[in-house]
């Protein structure tokens, strides 16, 4: 190696160093600690730093012995996956539509920026407030039920509006649709308009253009948005807790219950399982589209 190539290597390393250090300090080291702790033993008040698989065996308790009945872990992940799918489906449908409108129907850049900013308004208040705002609306004596009863559409208040799977999905979709809108809009805005004109000239209908031109070209945005939404929903326990009346299981809630009971190794083991499950889903999604190539 000549001195000049060494110097070039050094510059490259120096350029990568700040990000690498941040990554190391705030991601790799904490994650390594979580994995380490997940293999420790514990008692009622402390972690015992000796190797133990107890965190995992207790988390997966009954998964083989109780078959065919599902164990706590399976039931919880079943519930979490169901929420992930429903929220992903609705945020994608709404997010795609909103992004499509912004990218193709709004022609002036000023309006595009203005309307995009409008989408961010809910983010001016905190997550928790946006969530809690639903409660007086959906409650037994809430606005929706009062209206329904007042219009004689129902005899008695509808109970499943609040503290149910419905309210959890509703709140999650409300909270996270914007994470779908932005990346999809970003992909759509880069689509060469001449391709759409060409499709029309070649005799494609609106739907054909949408399905064969716009959707494939928006894929990177769709995948990035999906990764955002799915990872957030997989780890969420606050929304599921508040909107589900603390009666609906989620992977995050199990971690929280163990933390409250000072059982840090079991909590860490559950966090590792959750991380593995989420990584598998992301791996599957990135298999469908090579995000790096498409960007």
């Amino acid at each position: 190696m000549t001195p000049s190539t060494i110097a070039r290597h050094m510059v490259a390393w120096a350029q990568a160093a700040p990000m690498a250090l941040v990554f190391l300090a705030f991601f790799v080291i904490p994650l390594a600690l979580v994995v380490t702790v997940s293999f420790w033993d514990y008692n009622d008040w402390e972690m015992i730093p000796t190797f133990s698989g107890r965190g995992y065996t207790e988390s997966f308790e009954g998964c083989l012995t109780k078959l065919p009945e599902a164990c706590t872990m399976l039931k919880t992940y079943g519930q979490t996956l169901k929420f992930s799918f429903l929220v992903w489906f609705f945020t994608l449908a709404i997010g795609f539509t909103v992004a499509y409108f912004l990218a193709f129907h709004v022609t002036s850049t000023t309006w595009q920026i203005g309307l995009s900013l409008l989408c961010t308004i809910p983010f001016w208040t905190s997550n928790v407030i946006r969530m809690i705002a639903w409660i007086p609306l959906l409650g037994r004596n809430g606005l929706v039920n009062k209206t329904l009863v007042g219009l004689h559409l129902v005899d008695r208040p509808v109970e499943w509006l609040l503290y149910s799977e419905f309210s959890v999905v509703l709140a999650l979709v409300h909270l996270f649709t914007f994470f779908m809108v932005v990346p999809i809009f970003n992909s759509m805005i880069r689509i060469d308009r001449r391709l759409i004109e060409a499709a029309r000239d070649a005799g494609a209908t609106g739907w054909q253009t949408l399905w064969n031109v716009i959707v494939p070209l928006s894929k990177p945005g769709i995948v990035i948005g999906s990764i955002f939404v799915v990872t957030i929903v997989m780890g969420d326990f606050v929304t599921v807790g508040v909107m589900g009346g603390q009666q609906i299981a989620s992977a995050g809630k199990i971690v929280q219950t163990h933390l409250d009971a000072l059982q840090f190794p079991v909590a860490a083991a559950n966090a590792v399982v959750l991380l593995a499950a989420t990584l598998l889903i992301i791996a599957a999604m990135t298999r469908l589209v090579d995000v790096r190539k498409e960007l």
């Binding site: 009622d44 706590t72 919880t76 299981a249 219950t257």
Partner: peptide, 19 residues
């Protein structure tokens, strides 16, 4: 109270929430 079987109880509680 905190029970002697606290660890077991917490697991059962999670099972209860998941049921």
């Amino acid at each position: 109270a905190v029970m002697d079987e606290n660890d077991y109880m917490v697991r059962k509680w999670n099972e209860f929430i998941a049921s």
